[in-house]
Simulated assay, not measured.
Amino acid sequence: MAFLDDAVLDSGLSALTGISSPVLHICSAEPTSRSEALSLSLGNKTGITIGSPGDRTGGGRKVTISAITDGEVTATDEATSWAIIDDSKLWAANDLSAPQNVTDGNTFTLPAFDIGIPDPA
């Protein structure tokens, strides 16, 4: 069986905790680049909080993105994905736990969620 110490997994997740100006975007599809995240964006929240690495349910390590209660909606459509970017790159993206219809000018909310790395199989 393969083994990686938690410190190895934490090093990978520390890249996320070290982002100086993270911005979370809700998107109409899952982006694969920063420019695509911006073009698919339906809204955003600056200054998101990314927690320290910790144990992941089922093994491995994770960071938690804090809940968002006041994200700014900038377009009307169905948000299906989220993306975390900074000034230079797309750091992470995935599907929302549940798609949500959003309307330009409103706010959006998201519950806290985890980004994790599983233990090796």
Score class of each variant (00 low, 15 high):
105 G>Y: 01
79 A>W: 05
23 V>S: 13
103 T>I: 10
18 G>R: 14
13 L>Y: 05
28 S>F: 07
55 D>W: 00
66 S>V: 07
4 L>E: 15
57 T>R: 04
100 Q>W: 00
18 G>A: 15
90 L>A: 04
51 G>E: 06
60 G>Q: 07
98 A>K: 15
96 L>G: 11
35 S>W: 09
121 A>W: 02
56 R>H: 09
22 P>I: 02
35 S>M: 10
29 A>F: 02
53 P>V: 05
96 L>K: 03
111 P>R: 03
13 L>F: 06
14 S>T: 15
85 I>D: 03
63 V>I: 14
25 H>Y: 09
96 L>V: 05
29 A>G: 13
46 T>K: 06
49 T>V: 12
105 G>Q: 03
82 W>H: 08
109 T>K: 01
74 T>C: 13
48 I>M: 03
65 I>A: 03
49 T>I: 10
11 S>R: 13
22 P>H: 05
118 P>A: 04
16 L>H: 12
115 I>Y: 01
2 A>I: 04
23 V>Q: 12
74 T>S: 15
115 I>D: 04
77 D>A: 14
36 E>R: 14
49 T>D: 07
59 G>T: 01
14 S>R: 15
105 G>S: 04
24 L>F: 06
78 E>F: 04
64 T>C: 10
28 S>H: 07
62 K>S: 07
27 C>L: 14
49 T>L: 07
93 A>R: 00
55 D>N: 09
90 L>N: 07
20 S>T: 08
82 W>M: 05
93 A>F: 01
34 R>W: 07
3 F>W: 08
20 S>D: 13
57 T>H: 02
6 D>Q: 10
84 I>P: 04
14 S>H: 15
1 M>E: 13
120 P>M: 01
22 P>A: 02
87 D>H: 00
55 D>Y: 01
11 S>I: 08
4 L>T: 01
95 D>W: 09
49 T>E: 05
86 D>I: 12
2 A>M: 01
121 A>Y: 06
22 P>F: 06
52 S>P: 10
103 T>N: 02
34 R>G: 08
